[in-house]
Every structure is written in structure tokens, then in C-alpha cells.
Amino acid sequence: MNPIKRLLKVKYPIIQAPMAGAQNSTLAIQVSKFGALGSLPCATLDIEEMRREIKKIKLATDHSFNLNFFCHENPNNTKNENQWRQIIEKYYQEFNVEFKISSSISRLPFNENIIPVLNEFKPIVVSFHFGLPSKEIVKELKRMNIRIMSSATTVEEALYLEENGVDIIIAQGIEAGGHRGMFLSNDISTQMGLFSLLPQIVKKVKVPVVAAGGIVDAQTVTAAFQLGASGVQCGTVFLTCQESTVKYKKLLTDVSLPTAVTNIFTGRPARSIVNRAMKEIGTISEYAPPFPKSTNYFTPLRNHLERELNFDFSQLWSGQNRTNCKLDSTSHEILQDLIQGIP
């Protein structure tokens, strides 16, 4: 039996990528109801918001679902803050928006306060981005019989994850949209395409490997399995579906718009559709505050401009392959296509 189907108790070895800011429980519910693995991004939720969203999933379906968390360290101070303020402030002046930057933390790392929530709802699996939480927390999750997944962007990261107790490794190719899961290095030159990365990881580890990055249709699903994947994780293709909450769906259907990896919006490398901010500031800036503090510098300006559907200063997370992004598709229609590629 396929190891992903066995470990996660799903009908199809397809995982809907958790996409913070682009979805809520609605998408996760529909994917899980179909028989794939729906995911709820939890990094931007506080404990009570998390409980409310998980309750919605539990009330709607008894199928498996995934809870996703970040494993970053919140910054104690901000280097180059004055330089960054000078870079950003001129845009606030241009649009006559008050330059008032919140000091709140927009994304929280996994911590011990979340353990009671997992005890309460008992998800079959949790997934992590940016490595793993402490060894003590990993042991506690194992004791609770929760499966653990985490993203690897290099062979070295995959070996680290396997050594530290991960049940399933998600091989994240450079094509993937949103944040790079890299955690052993900050060097973007170490990042490779999925179809180079995937077979190398599969050859080196014993745990099942899920392919992520550029998987948008039956053909790319088949290709991932042919290179040794036991399952696939898909994100960008769901961004234009009815259950997605993103405002920039129309941009996603324009495959002529390029994407690039940038750190300016959050402080960590992430793939976005190229917009004015990335063109003028640069895709990678040494002055960008560390993750997730950089987010706060764009939030008031972004919120103001998005009222007019101006996305010049928004993070437009997207993978490189948007060939199957269709307006008003449903998650079930997307999944019907994807499952045709499963061997």
C-alpha cells in the first residue's frame, strides 16, 4: 500500500499545501472530504482562532487533516532598521498613508502552548516549515501518536529531518510558491528545482518523500511519482479556486507574469509574482528586517492599496507553474484532475 495513504489514512496521496493568508478551514474541509489531505495553516492564528478553525473542520468531516506550523525564532532586534525605514517610507508619502508600523508579531513559531490544542483535537498529522521544534516537543508529538511532516529544500535538510524523527519529508523545489522551507542555510544558491532535488532525497532517506513545487495537473503528478515520490503537495493550483481567500486571483491566471524569490515582504525568501515593490527595491535586500518583522512595514500600505485592487506592494505568493490556475474552479475539480496522474 502507498505509504502516504497508510500513514495519513487518506484515499489519495495528495496534500493541499497549507497557505497562510490564502485560505482558512473551508479549503481544508473540502480537500479532506474528497479523500486527499486538507491542511490548515496555523502560524498566523492565535490559540482561540486555531481552536475555532479546527472545530469547523472536525464538525464538517471525520477525514484526516493536517495542521501546519512555522519553526522560526522571533528576532530580538532589528538590524538596519533606519535604512529600511528610509527605503519604505517614501512609498507611504507617495500614497499619503500614515507611516505607523506595528511592533506586533504576525507569525508565531510552534510552542508548548499549542500542545493542549493538539491533545484536544488529535490531528493525525502536523507539518512544519523552517525545520522542527525542540526535540522535547517532537518526542511529545510522537507520544501522542501524531505523524510529523516537514519541508526539506536540500539533501542535507532531508537527512537532518529523518535523523530527528520526521515520518514524511516534503521535498520543496525552487519552483514552489510562498516561503522557502530552508533552515540549515540562508544561501539561495543551494536551492534546486524539484526534479533535481526529489530523486536525490529519495535515494538518501528511508522515510516516504512528498514532492512539492510545480505540481499542478495529472501530468506533473505522474512525473513526480516516476522520480520516486510517494505523494505530492500542491498549493498554487488551489489559489484561484472558489475556496481560496486571495484577492489577486486574476493575476495568477496570467502566466506571462514572472515570479521571483524575494525576502522584502517578510524577511525570509519566498516566491512571489514580481510587482513594483520587487522591481524598485530589489528581490533580495540586505536591509529587510528579519522574519517575520518585515511584514509589518508593508501592512498599512498594502491594506490601503488593496482596497483599489492595487497589488504593487503586496506579497503575491505563487509558484512558477500556473498553467492550471483557472478562475472559479472548485477544489474538487482540481483534485479530480490531479488524481488522474496517480499510478
Rank of each mutant, 00 (worst) to 15 (best):
T222F: 08
V216N: 02
D217P: 13
A260G: 03
L251D: 04
V202C: 10
V246P: 04
P269G: 02
V210I: 10
L257T: 08
M278F: 07
K204L: 08
P208S: 08
S256H: 12
Q233D: 10
T240F: 13
V202T: 01
V274M: 05
E286F: 06
K249Q: 15
F291M: 11
V255Q: 14
L257Q: 10
S256N: 13
T262R: 09
L252R: 13
V210C: 10
L251V: 00
A288Y: 04
V246S: 10
I215E: 02
V216Q: 08
E286G: 13
I273H: 01
R276E: 09
Q219E: 13
G228W: 05
V202I: 05
G214A: 13
A277W: 06
V237Q: 06
L251E: 13
K250W: 14
I273T: 07
A218P: 12
K250L: 15
L239V: 14
G228K: 02
A218T: 00
S285E: 03
A218M: 12
P208N: 09
L252K: 09
L227K: 10
C234F: 02
T220L: 05
P292N: 03
Q219P: 01
Y248P: 08
V209N: 02
P258H: 01
F291L: 03
K249M: 15
I273N: 01
D254W: 14
K250T: 14
A212P: 04
S230N: 11
K249G: 15
I284K: 03
V207W: 02
R276Q: 12
T259K: 13
G282C: 00
Y248I: 13
A224D: 02
T222Q: 14
R271K: 10
K279H: 07
S294A: 15
I284W: 08
E280Q: 12
V209Q: 07
G267Q: 09
A212C: 09
I264T: 03
R268I: 14
T245N: 13
Q226M: 15
A229E: 02
E286M: 11
V274N: 05
I215H: 08
N263Q: 11
A224G: 04
T253H: 12
T266L: 11
G235D: 00
I273M: 03
N263L: 05
L239P: 04
K203G: 00
V237Y: 07
G235I: 02
P269S: 04
T220S: 15
P208V: 08
V274G: 01
K250N: 14
K204H: 04
F238V: 07
A211M: 01
V232K: 00
V210Q: 02
R271I: 08
I264D: 09
G213H: 07
K293E: 01
S285K: 05
T240E: 09
V221P: 01
P258G: 00
I264E: 08
D217W: 05
F265C: 11
T236F: 12
K250M: 15
A229H: 00
Q233R: 03
L227Y: 15
F225V: 06
R268T: 08
A211R: 07
V237L: 10
S285C: 06
I264M: 11
P290H: 01
F225S: 10
G282R: 01
C234R: 04
G282D: 01
L251N: 12
I273R: 02
Q226F: 09
A218Y: 11
D254P: 03
E280W: 01
M278D: 04
E243Q: 15
D254H: 11
S294E: 10
Y248V: 11
P290W: 03
V221G: 03
T240Q: 04
K293W: 00
